[in-house]
Design a protein around this nucleic acid. Sequence first.
DNA 1: GTATGTGCAAATGATTTGCGTGCTT
DNA 2: AAGCACGCAAATCATTTGCACATAC
Lengths: 154, 154
Amino acid sequence: MMMRSTQPSKDKEKISKLERACIEKGMKMTEQRRVIARVLSESTDHPDVEEVYHRATQYDSGISIATVYRTLRLFDIANIIDRHEFGDGRARYEMSDQVGHHHHLIDMKTGQVVEFEDEKLEDLKARIANDLGYKLIGDRLDLYGVSLEDEDSK
Amino acid sequence: MMMRSTQPSKDKEKISKLERACIEKGMKMTEQRRVIARVLSESTDHPDVEEVYHRATQYDSGISIATVYRTLRLFDIANIIDRHEFGDGRARYEMSDQVGHHHHLIDMKTGQVVEFEDEKLEDLKARIANDLGYKLIGDRLDLYGVSLEDEDSK
DNA sequence: GTATGTGCAAATGATTTGCGTGCTT
DNA sequence: AAGCACGCAAATCATTTGCACATAC
C-alpha cells in the first residue's frame, strides 16, 4: 500500500511542487532534499517525521533520519511546509497551502483529521487581531470533536 | 518581580479556586497539590512547568519537580487547567475558564501573550464543526502577530 | 575549490517512571 | 491500616548537534 500520488502518478522524473519551491528560494538541492520534497508533495495526509523518513526510504534507502529532521525544519522555516502538533507528542507535516488557508478538525474517537477552509473565519481572525492592535501574521486552529452519528447513538 | 495575586492577597489560608475544584472532583488533597492549585489560582499569566515549580517552591520549599509534572498532568486531565504549547518547546498552563472561553494572540516580537474572547468566533467554530458532521468538544486557536505600531514604523 | 549538506552516534531537553518511604482518608 | 502520593534518580522520547566525509554550485 503506497497510494498517495495526487497527480497523474508516473511523474517519477518530474520536479515536485516542493522541489520547485525550494529552487525558487535558491536552496542547494541535494538528492535527499529532492526526495523529501517529493514525499511531501505526494502526501495528502499529515505524516510525522518517522513516517516521512519511512516514505523517503523507498526512494533513497540510505537517507538518514537526522537529515529528515534537518530538512523538515529547513522547509518549515522557509514556509513551504507547515508543522502541526495534534496532541500526540510528535510533530506532523504537510505542504503549505498554495492558495487559501486550511485548518483541521480532529476526530477524538478515531484520530482522523478532517481539513476545512472558511472565509468568514479568515476574516474574523484578521479582524480580531486588528482590534487588539496587531497585524495577523500566522495562526493555528485545531477543532476537536466527535461524529454526530456517534453522538446521536448514545 | 513576583506580582501575580489577583485576589485581595492575604488569603494565605483560604481555599483556592482550584483546590475547591479538586475537592469537588474527589481528589486526595496533599500539601503539594494544594500549593500547586494555589499557584495556578493566583497566576494571571501562562507559566511553564519550571516556573510553576519555582512559584510553588515559595510555599513549600521541599516540593519536587516530578510532583509538579504529575500534578499538572492530573489537573489537565481533570479539566481544571488548560495546557498550551506556544511554540517554545515547553508546555504552559493556566486555570481553565470558569465561564466563556478565551484564546491567545502571541506577539511575535516580544513573546507577550494577549488573551481574547469573541462570541462570533465561538459560534463560527461550532457551526463549522457541525457542518462537517461533528459536535465540537474542544479547540485550540493561537494567533501570531506583530504590533501595528511596530509594523507602521517600518 | 569552498561552502554547505549528510550520516552516525552521542548529546539535549522536556517529561515520565520505578522504587522505597511517607502521608491522606 | 491500605492505598495513593512524593522525592529521587534513572529512563524515555522526540529532536538536535559535533565531527569527519561527501557533494552542489
